[in-house]
Amino acid sequence: MTVKNYFPEDESERVAVDAGLSRKVGAHNDNLMVVEVHFDKGVTAPLHHHPHEQITYVMSGRFEFTIGDETYIVGAGDSLYKQPNIEHGATCLEAGTLLDVFTPRRDDFL
């Protein structure tokens, strides 16, 4: 099996998820994936859950994140952890970009 080590920016396209919300998949293998997520101001990613562990790094913008029964206002440089199957969602308060890391890989994003 050949392992892909390099994922050039121009080989991955930004995909519209919903109005004002798009994502771009970066490097990934079976066990790990990185995804850039772009939000326009006011867009909400509704509460949801999945079996993957997830870390979110805020690259830019401001967001209100709900994870379980806790809510956080976060900005550039902040990061969040979401354990498997925990309800979570976010509302974009100021247009921005998140970097999500999933383990294992989100096959539904490919």
Rank of each mutant, 00 (worst) to 15 (best):
H52S: 00
R23Y: 13
G20P: 04
R14W: 09
L32P: 01
D40N: 15
A45N: 12
R14N: 10
D40K: 05
A16L: 14
K24S: 01
D30S: 14
L32F: 15
P51W: 03
M33C: 07
N31C: 12
H52E: 11
G26R: 03
N29Q: 09
D30Q: 14
E13Q: 15
H49P: 05
G42Y: 03
D18K: 02
V37R: 01
K41H: 10
G26W: 01
T44I: 12
N29W: 03
S22R: 00
V35N: 10
G20L: 01
P46C: 06
E53N: 04
D30V: 11
V43R: 05
F39E: 03
H48M: 00
V25S: 01
H49W: 07
A45E: 10
A27M: 11
V15M: 10
L32N: 10
H49M: 12
A19M: 05
V35T: 11
K24G: 04
S22W: 03
A19T: 10
E13L: 14
I55A: 12
R14M: 12
Q54S: 09
T44H: 03
K24R: 15
D30P: 04
G26C: 09
G26E: 01
G42D: 06
N31F: 11
E36T: 12
N31D: 15
S12F: 12
H49L: 13
M33G: 02
R14K: 14
P46E: 11
N31P: 03
L47N: 03
P51M: 04
L32I: 14
H48N: 09
V17D: 10
Q54R: 00
L32W: 13
H48S: 04
K24L: 01
P46H: 09
D18W: 09
G20A: 02
D40Q: 15
D18H: 07
R23Q: 13
P46V: 03
D18A: 15
F39H: 00
L21N: 04
E53K: 13
Q54P: 08
E13P: 07
H48T: 05
T44N: 02
H28Y: 10
H49G: 08
L47V: 01
T44R: 06
A45V: 12
K41D: 14
T44K: 01
P46D: 10
V43A: 07
S12P: 01
H52K: 08
E53H: 12
V34Y: 12
V25M: 02
Q54F: 01
V43M: 05
K41S: 14
D30H: 13
L47D: 08
K24I: 00
R14H: 06
V35M: 14
H49V: 08
L32G: 10
V17T: 11
Q54V: 07
F39W: 04
V25Q: 00
L32M: 15
L21A: 08
G42C: 05
D30I: 00
K24E: 09
H28G: 07
N29P: 04
H50D: 06
K24M: 12
G20H: 02
N29I: 09
R23P: 00
P51C: 06
R14F: 02
L21E: 11
E13M: 14
L47G: 04
T44E: 14
